[in-house]
Design a protein around this nucleic acid. Sequence first.
DNA 1: ACTCCACTATACAGATCGGTATACCTTGGG
DNA 2: CCCAAGGTATACCGATCTGTATAGTGGAGT
Lengths: 213, 213
Amino acid sequence: MGASVEAMGVSDMVMGENEGPRRIALTPAARRALEAAGRLFYERGIHAVGVDLIAAEAGVTKKTLYDRFGSKEQIVVEYLADRDERWRAFLAERLDVPDRELPARERVLAVFDASRAWALEHSSKGCSMVNAHAEISDPAHPAYPVIAGQKQWMLGLFTGLGAEIAPDRAEHLGRTLMLLHEGALVAHGLGIFDDPIGHAREEARALVSTGGV
Amino acid sequence: MGASVEAMGVSDMVMGENEGPRRIALTPAARRALEAAGRLFYERGIHAVGVDLIAAEAGVTKKTLYDRFGSKEQIVVEYLADRDERWRAFLAERLDVPDRELPARERVLAVFDASRAWALEHSSKGCSMVNAHAEISDPAHPAYPVIAGQKQWMLGLFTGLGAEIAPDRAEHLGRTLMLLHEGALVAHGLGIFDDPIGHAREEARALVSTGGV
DNA sequence: ACTCCACTATACAGATCGGTATACCTTGGG
DNA sequence: CCCAAGGTATACCGATCTGTATAGTGGAGT
């Protein structure tokens, strides 16, 4: 594992990954509801947001909400799966540059650059997966695989890049990059200091230029 | 800042820091309530736990809860302040070794060792401050300074240690250690891979042995 | 003896929670 | 022409939410 990722573009990995949940047809009203739910869940927390509020903000009746999604739990799942999907697409745009294969070292930096850009416009309160995990206690919750899957995917991404940089230490390097990245997201969300993702990027640069030793 | 921390023992810094909230006299019933609230808040999330449940778990009436704490909001504040206090004491025991001044490099490692030990017995779901932050949207919430204060204190600790190791790069080194540490706590909470805090410790060791360059 | 104080027990208020039911409107494709 | 699908509007359900009110108990200090 990890090595299998090696030569793939990110967009290849986006496909076929979400075998789990997310089968709901997004009618216009459902799309509006999901947009509102996503915004509210992320900014106020999942338990703090009721379905009445989601319906009101989306300009949709509760009936429609339940016709489309069936339950609040499912709205949560769709929210996380949708956000994950958007993030992966956002990242793919910046990693799979057309007509030019970026070397692995630059792709590592590109991940951090993408995170910084994403954080600035979509993610001022930190990682939605981490935040959702804080509110979900039951491991049997259908959102669990989405959360765990996202983190495993990111770890696989870093490990795959690590394999191109220092094959004998791919796993070690991948994990270190993962820690720096997660730490930077948290630090950004809590405003611990200025531009933590940029700081992590520079540490990552030092790591990959020495081969992760 | 950062340099002022230099020669202090951690226990010195614990004192006089919490000027903010936390003035409540902990009667026996209040102590039981706080213990139950802490356990429930951490494991299930703040909004998912009602005051009735706290009262029931503590073997205390709701009347007593409100006589002691005044509001659920205040229980949350006490929960976080109490946990922060316990963590700092836990850390101080491992940093301020009697009859022997640990060199800064070893104290950095001791922080990660303490975090690993703490995580194993008290913190399987990640950092309570990060998790609480995920549920609190309003920056005017009285728990905000507790959360921000804890992170700033940890950053100050790392920066102070960094100043002893590489005075000209104290801030940079402190921030890098902070990112590794936060990342490790998140990774531990989400179970991304095995023993992330141990991994972060080894990365920290490499960092402080090269002087953080 | 008297009085605080911490506490129990119970009931209730008003709001909001997730979720359901009924009835009606509109639109596009067989 | 019809009818299914997506939608609105509104009312309702039981449960739970934070918070309050009333009444009473037992012990420690003066």
